[in-house]
Amino acid sequence: MNAKPARTRTAGKPATAAPARKAKPTGQPKVAAAANGATPLVEMRDISIAFGGVRAVDHASVDLYPGEVVGLLGHNGAGKSTLIKILSGAYPRDHGQIYINGQEAQIANPRDAKAYGIETIYQTLALADNVDAAANLFLGRELRTRWGTLDDVAMEAQARKVMGRLNPNFRRFKDPVVALSGGQRQSVAIARAILFNARILIMDEPTAALGPQETAQVAELIKQLKADGIGIFLISHDIHDVFDLADRVFVMKNGQVVGQAPTVAVTKDEVLGMIILGKCPPGAIPGPGAMAA
């Protein structure tokens, strides 16, 4: 894993190009102004969504800077996946705004999100089970020949390249992904997210099904992407992993943000206290979900 991360350029417009700037500049001050004062790559402000009576995400605000890894932590059902699915365009939000590079972003569906350079590894992987790895990697962004037909051979060639870096033992390019092991499927999902020039990467439990070697490779990959200036939201239940990789953590509980903290300013036990009790330590900035002191 010492090669550069996959920066595959696809034919046509680069994936990172923001869509025909529907966004209008806003004069509002940044709420979560970072210590360095730069414009956040992503700012999700005051986001809410309810499913029936369940307030899955309740006035949550998170932000992310270029080259930063932000860990999202919280108990099962805390609302982590739902929050990032709003960013990836999978769910329409009931309330709140999203800013990308300081400009309000219109994200109504996954296509919009991808146009802003947001790539997502979903917890459920979201693979089309009946088609092969290459078809999944390029789903929705197929390479085409000059006659407009699918260029399966070229897609397979690129798939072999990127999969070779993530999971060198992977050979099953002809099989539908339903026939792959859980870890192999996860590798396919990760490969898909890094294949295009993502600016913002969302990883929802990216290593849950991976073996130790593959997990280490993903950790290495995250460091490389970070060095390239990509912002990463990392959701994980493995607090050690998060402390190894993340610069900051946000902790959620019952749909609300308990608080945020740079990983250098808090201990693992303090973060566990935030997750379980909702209690903010001195090194953290409390959010609306923090237990009253």
Binding site: P110, R111, T120, A126, L127, A128, D129, A135, E142
Partner: peptide
């Protein structure tokens, strides 16, 4: 064709197809 690929992807996992854009 792309259209054909999408038809099969939708059949395999409609949600994934939607999330893929």
């Amino acid at each position: 064709t792309r259209f054909g690929r999408y038809v099969f992807a939708i059949g395999g996992n409609p949600e994934a197809a939607e999330l893929a854009g």
